[in-house]
């Protein structure tokens, strides 16, 4: 699997670099949406390659829910340093404190949906006209239908029925003032492609992607980590397990899987054999049948 994948990774890399260069050619103030997860890490590395030997000509933007695994934030600050790139942080906590949004309450309260407001405020304040994201089409059924250059109206909304036809490799980033684009350079990559690329290019990712021991409990069939932000109930006993995370998001809605994969090579082996999708552990997607489509329409990542 690995020997043949070098060839196709080269083609995927080439396509992503082409897309990132189109971003710089077509927009005035682009930025990379950086979550600290492997996909936005890979996008940042691709940007490094696209503009080498120049610096990455735009900043990273992190929308911080305040509900992070500490490992992710440590990783982020170190990453920004090593990559020699600028970072702007939008804080959901500040949006809550200033009354822009109201915290959810109840058992499955999460700041996942609130992020959209912080993100759109951030875009307006900084006059960003293009946000580059690490979303992939294999992740989720609404994302499978989104263009690589995806238009957002002045309210940040995505309209799946009004998507511009996207032909050949000619991207149309024209827009009116106040509108912006989301661009997804790794649309055509799969979870396995991302991991193979991480292995091939020796890219560092946060430690929580690898098997480690942690206190966890089960909620709605998903393994959740015990953190300060989410409290297990009486009927949700805590056990200590060897786990890892397949996606890195807000700690309140990112589930773990039991795993012994403690190196990139073992993760690749594991992912190749897994029978559930990557976002199968994301509580935010399970809110309804069309949870992602509904959030995207209002401006989510």
């Amino acid at each position: 699997m690995n020997t043949h994948s070098l060839q196709h990774l080269k083609e995927l890399e080439s396509e992503s670099i082409y897309i990132l260069r189109e971003v710089v050619a077509q927009f005035e103030r682009p930025a990379i949406l950086f979550s600290g997860g492997k996909d936005s890490i890979v996008v940042s590395h691709l940007a490094k390659r696209a503009f080498y030997p120049a610096r990455i000509p735009f900043p990273l933007v992190h929308i911080d829910t305040g509900h992070n695994f500490p490992e992710t934030i440590l990783f982020r600050d170190d990453f920004v340093n090593k990559m020699d790139v600028d970072l702007s942080v939008g804080s959901v906590q500040e949006s809550i404190d200033s009354g822009r949004v109201t915290e959810e309450v109840g058992r499955n309260a999460s700041r996942n949906v609130l992020q959209t407001v912080t993100l759109l405020d951030m875009i307006r304040e900084n006059k960003f006209d293009c946000m580059v994201g690490g979303a992939r089409r294999d992740e989720e059924k609404a994302r499978a239908k989104e263009r690589i250059f995806s238009h957002r109206d002045e309210f940040g909304q995505w309209d799946p029925k009004k998507q511009r036809p996207e032909l050949w490799n000619i991207f149309n980033g024209r827009k009116n003032l106040g509108e912006h684009f989301r661009v997804f350079p790794i649309s055509n990559w799969t979870e396995l492609d991302v991991w193979n690329y991480i292995e091939q290019e020796k890219i560092e990712v946060p430690s929580i992607y690898f098997a480690h021991e942690r206190d966890v409990f089960v909620r709605d069939g998903v393994l959740m980590a015990v953190t300060d932000f989410i409290k297990q109930l009486a009927d949700e006993p805590v056990t200590r397990k060897k786990i890892r995370f397949r996606t890195v998001g807000d700690a309140t809605c990112t589930g773990a899987i039991e795993s012994l994969a403690d190196t990139v090579a073992r993760v690749i082996e594991e992912v190749a054999g897994l029978r559930t999708t990557e976002r199968g552990t994301r509580a935010d997607d399970k809110r309804s049948e069309t949870a992602m489509e509904d959030r995207k329409r209002t401006g989510y990542f």
Partner: peptide, 8 residues
């Protein structure tokens, strides 16, 4: 089916 969907 209303739009192009990509599968891998």
């Amino acid at each position: 089916t209303i739009d192009v969907a990509y599968r891998y």
